[in-house]
Design a protein around this nucleic acid. Structure first.
Length: 441
DNA sequence: TCTGGGGTCCTAGGACCC
DNA sequence: TCTGGGGTCCTAGGACCC
């Protein structure tokens, strides 16, 4: 441990602060706040009997499910996020399992993000359980970033969950620092200490370098961030394109990406993996209708209309095909775009081929305030003849039906109303989504 | 007992227009 | 008639993140 790289932990949510004497902080200060085993921690908060026991939030072991989050009590058994649930079940047979309660996690997350925004408006939420904060000392607020971090940890713990925080001069450093000590860790990397901090770490530690990039680097003898920092820039650019320069800069501690408050949604999608592969056209269309309805409802709830409709299919060998189409006009109405999805599926699938997953997505949202109801069906060109009346009447009726359906679903839950084409076979999903109407407030 | 679901971003090729 | 380049949009696929 050097004065450049301080690594500390505060034992109790101490009123007086549990921090040792601090060196002054000169330069930018970015925090990454990461909620510890978030989903599992909320479950333990809500179920006192589960505290101190291995808890796994994830899909069913016998339905292609995977682990979403494992509590810290489950991790010594080797259980990790993204692991197939079947493997997790074998490693930790006595764990308590739950499919999760996402509205509850969202509620907790919102409360905690509120705590962060009370510290500074410069908050970038990167996921339900992570956010960057820019707390660079200013002329008016000279508070040490470690003191801000400590206060955040205390306030988060008052909500009943814990967090780990990394503090550095860039998002790259803050993110990696937050991973160094979990749970309830607080890791500082002082300005100037970036390269020494990064050098011994495996390349995979850095955000943006996944399995594929790691392998390409390894085959060129680059295994640590120190080796990446010293690697030839032109070679990196040749192999990785734009990413090559980015990873080189970051490995040298030079990341200057700002904390951005950009919460604009760019796409909305739903997908579903089946316990048993689908082969019949009727079943595939039913699944498409179900996904299309979920997407449509979320679009309407968010007040979004999209122009780009996408369909994704995964087969039993895990290969993926995708198709996308531009709509004549932006839509949030699945009754209008589902027929188009039925045509799109023909481009990537032939009945009889086993289908493991189907996904429907919408993107290309129109600008805010540009919402305009057209008289014409979105999936068809405007009629060139004078035969407009039936289309108009049809569309108005449909809108009324959609809105009535949303009302019922809002009150009684997602499964309360189904259109004829939607999938009825509840047993045939991975079971990672909740069937409890209380989950859909 | 293998490998979810919700996202973002990048790339490369083709169409089209000026 | 032949030629070229740049910009933009669209599409499919893939890497990556939590």
């Amino acid at each position: 441990m050097t004065d450049r790289f301080q690594h500390t932990r505060f034992e109790e949510p101490a009123v007086g602060g549990g921090l040792p004497p601090l060196d002054p902080w000169e330069g930018p200060a970015i925090l990454l706040v990461d909620l510890d085993a978030f989903f599992a921690s909320v479950e333990q908060l809500d179920h006192p009997a589960w505290r101190g026991k291995p808890v796994i939030v994830g899909g069913d072991p016998d339905k292609h499910g995977v682990v979403s989050t494992a509590s810290y009590e489950a991790r010594p058994f080797g259980v990790r996020s993204a692991m197939p649930s079947s493997t997790a079940k074998r490693l930790c047979p006595d764990a308590i399992w739950t499919h999760g309660h996402f509205d509850r996690y969202r509620e907790m997350s919102d409360a905690i993000m509120g705590i962060l925004r009370a510290e500074t408006p410069h908050v970038q939420q990167v996921s339900i359980d992570e956010a960057f904060l820019d707390v660079t000392p200013t002329a008016v607020n000279r508070e040490h970033p470690a003191r801000v971090a400590e206060r955040i940890q205390r306030r988060v713990e008052e909500q009943g969950v814990t967090c780990s925080i990394g503090v550095g001069t860039s998002k790259t450093i803050a993110k990696i620092a937050s991973d160094m000590d979990k749970p309830r860790g607080l890791t500082l990397v002082y300005p100037g200490g970036e390269r020494d901090f990064l050098a011994p770490l495996p390349v995979r530690t850095m955000s943006g370098i996944g399995a594929a990039a790691e392998e390409k680097l390894r085959s060129r003898g680059i295994c640590t961030l120190g080796q990446l920092a010293d690697a030839d820039l032109r070679m990196l650019e040749r192999v990785f394109g734009k990413l090559g320069r980015v990873m080189h800069v970051r490995a040298n501690g030079g990341d200057d990406a700002p904390v951005e408050q950009d919460d604009e949604v760019k796409s909305v999608s739903n997908e579903m993996t089946f316990a048993h592969d689908l082969t019949k056209r009727q079943d595939v269309e039913a699944a498409i209708a179900t996904m299309a309805a979920k997407v449509g409802r979320r679009l309407r709830r968010k007040g979004l209309r999209g122009r780009t409709l996408a369909l994704r299919v995964k087969f039993d060998d895990l290969s993926v095909r995708s198709v996308q189409r531009q709509l004549i006009e932006p839509s949030d109405d699945e009754l209008a775009y589902t027929p188009l999805l039925y045509r799109m599926i023909d481009e990537v699938w032939r009945p009889g081929t086993p289908v493991r997953l189907i996904g429907v997505g919408m993107s290309g949202f129109e600008e805010e305030g540009a919402v305009q109801e057209s008289l014409f069906d979105v999936t068809e060109a405007a009629p060139s003849t004078g035969d407009v009346e039936p289309v108009v009447r049809d569309k108005c009726k449909r809108r009324g039906l959609i809105e009535a359906t949303d009302l019922v679903k809002n009150r009684f839950g997602e499964t309360a109303v189904r259109f004829g084409r939607e999938l009825r076979n509840e047993e045939n999903t991975t079971g990672s989504s909740s069937k409890n109407p209380a989950d859909y407030k």
